[in-house]
Simulated assay, not measured.
Amino acid sequence: MHPASGYQTRHDACDVLDTHRHDAAYAALVLDGSHVEASADGPIACTPGTLVLHPRWHAHGNRFGRQGAKVVNVELDTAPARLHVLRVPDLREAAEVFVRAPQRLAELLAACEVASAPSLPAWQVEFLSALEHDELAMTELARRAGVSLAHASRSFLKSHGMPPQLLRRELRCRRALALLGGDASLAQIAADSGFADQSHLSRSLREATGNTPSRLRRQIKCVQDANPRAAVQ
């Protein structure tokens, strides 16, 4: 892992960033203030010392606290396969690594502790699992979870930054991106990821990443060839 030097971003009090995506994998370290990052991974409370490793094309939104927030970011050559939320042992030293010694990032990561996973209501956990694995209509999923569809939509929009329909697409796209690193055909990947057919897969991935499945596969394979042993899984 050989990231470039870090760059800082300052966000105003109570600022809101709608759900967006970064093409590159990157690490973000909160220096001061606070924000909540909402994604298909759930709401992540980010305070000074929180270090978040984002995989490529990770979709998330941000709601900043009353003091705003200052964050330092570095792009990663080696993309993590999934989101990682960590706590650094010493914020001042971690900031030095990000800004002046990014070549020591792997050493910093090894010293971090894994942050607590977000706590979700039981019905949301059940709903998310069904979104990823079942083909049932949203109204039926809400009924089985014991909530109204309107309540589910409001709750997921607040906690995950997306209503259930977009969450379903996001979870399917994630599964497809993971499978693109293998040798299965695009038609098989579409079926295994829950898409109706290969055309549905192509449309969804193009909307999510701006790239076709074939181009994404080439990019993923190129990264795998250049980094046969990823620093972060």
Rank of each mutant, 00 (worst) to 15 (best):
A95C: 10
Q165T: 09
E37Q: 11
I44M: 13
L180P: 04
G182F: 07
Q198F: 12
R21H: 07
P118W: 04
A4E: 14
Q8D: 10
A191W: 14
A106T: 12
L108I: 10
V125C: 12
R143A: 13
S204N: 05
A38T: 13
L166P: 00
S214D: 12
F98W: 03
L108C: 05
R92Y: 11
N211L: 14
L108W: 11
A152D: 05
R229T: 09
L141C: 03
S155N: 09
R104Y: 00
L108M: 10
L83K: 00
R218W: 02
H2Q: 13
P163M: 06
V223F: 13
S148Y: 07
V97F: 04
A130D: 15
V52K: 00
C173A: 07
A25R: 02
K158A: 14
H84G: 00
H84W: 10
V52T: 03
K221Q: 10
A101G: 06
E107R: 14
S155A: 14
L105C: 02
Q233N: 09
P43W: 15
G65Y: 01
G68D: 08
F127Y: 14
L76E: 05
G210S: 02
H20G: 01
H54W: 10
A190M: 06
G49M: 04
P213T: 06
G194K: 08
A95Y: 11
L179N: 01
A38E: 14
G182Y: 08
A101E: 15
S199V: 05
G210T: 01
A176L: 07
A196Q: 12
A190F: 11
W57Q: 00
P213R: 04
A231M: 12
A69P: 02
A145C: 03
R229P: 00
Q188Y: 11
L216S: 01
G182W: 05
T19L: 13
C173G: 01
A110M: 13
C112D: 02
Q224C: 03
G194V: 07
S185A: 11
D77R: 12
R215H: 13
A13E: 07
M162T: 03
R100I: 00
I220P: 01
F156G: 01
F127E: 03
S39W: 14
H60A: 06
V74H: 06
E93K: 13
Q233M: 11
L177D: 01
A117Y: 12
L136T: 06
D23W: 13
V88M: 06
V125E: 15
R63K: 08
N62R: 15
P48D: 01
F64T: 02
L128N: 09
V125G: 07
A111K: 14
F195H: 03
P48V: 01
R56D: 00
M162E: 08
L29M: 05
S119E: 15
L128I: 06
A226I: 10
H11N: 11
S193A: 13
A27Y: 12
R217G: 03
T212V: 02
G161W: 09
Y26N: 08
Q224I: 07
L166E: 14
N73G: 01
R21F: 04
R168P: 03
A106G: 08
E135S: 13
S204V: 06
S34Y: 08
